[in-house]
Write a protein that binds this DNA or RNA. Sequence first.
DNA 1: CGCTTGCTTGGAGTGCACTCCAAGGTTCTA
DNA 2: TAGAACCTTGGAGTGCACTCCAAGCAAGCG
Lengths: 154, 154
Amino acid sequence: MTVMETTGTRTDSCAGPPQQNRRPDGEDCYTISEVVALTGLTAHTLRWYERIGLMPHIDRSHTGQRRYTNRDLDWLDLVGKLRLTGMPVADMVRYAELVREGDHTYGERFELLKTTREDVLARIDELRGTLAVLDRKISFYADAGRALASERSR
Amino acid sequence: MTVMETTGTRTDSCAGPPQQNRRPDGEDCYTISEVVALTGLTAHTLRWYERIGLMPHIDRSHTGQRRYTNRDLDWLDLVGKLRLTGMPVADMVRYAELVREGDHTYGERFELLKTTREDVLARIDELRGTLAVLDRKISFYADAGRALASERSR
DNA sequence: CGCTTGCTTGGAGTGCACTCCAAGGTTCTA
DNA sequence: TAGAACCTTGGAGTGCACTCCAAGCAAGCG
């Protein structure tokens, strides 16, 4: 019975400081299941990321198995962050392409990140608005609950 | 050619104070396309919401056309907010069911909203973390851009 | 009256981001 | 050296949240 292909054991409580459990540069050579454990992604997703060009082509062992490096893990950290912003995968692939194309795409990358930054700020604002609505509703129900309780005790 | 079924004309710049362009209670009777204009949802989505139980059954005109009320618009406002939090539609349907079931579900609604509130707070925190990463990258590219510029002018 | 525009329905289709499968080769542990 | 656990591939499948379609009824206008 195969247990992997699921979320794996993330030991950090919840998004602590990144790059833990890593090997020093030079001997950084991780199997796909190690990357699963480190990132919380599934092996399926890692292979899929590579297929669609969201990852560079990953080095292979002499038998063709994937061997990830610290650099790959850094990239996956960034992808994870961008994913949290709700950025579509297609846009992340575009960013990956820019990185592959070399230094002359710095300007375009800069613009893309700035746009994303604006989006994130707008999103945070939206969420704050929602929070206000939620708090109003919650205090309504809290009051209603108290009213019901005093009703019962009377 | 039918132009509707698209986003429609939202006149408010971006999520200003809600309930504008509304008719006073008592003569609140909106066609589906008016609701499209007021909410930014499509008519498809409004009908779909009703089918899946995310809306109460909407009143009909004598010919069977939907006639929305201010109360319905209020509900759609709330649904819109909850949607922004990323709450799954199924959970919103659950909330709608609780509302339909009556006052004795206050406690459960309270819990649901509190959980959602926590989720929103966590989400805001995630986004703030992402913002930090983004800012670091952006300032890297800004520096690189400046370096390139001084390179050229030399 | 005819025409355009808008509304109705159930069911089928779409796009995204995975998620899984089958069949087979590889690596590790006892 | 056996057996379990792990890895490979292309392609098919899933779940969510819409999104669209066809066929037909209804309302307003010149």
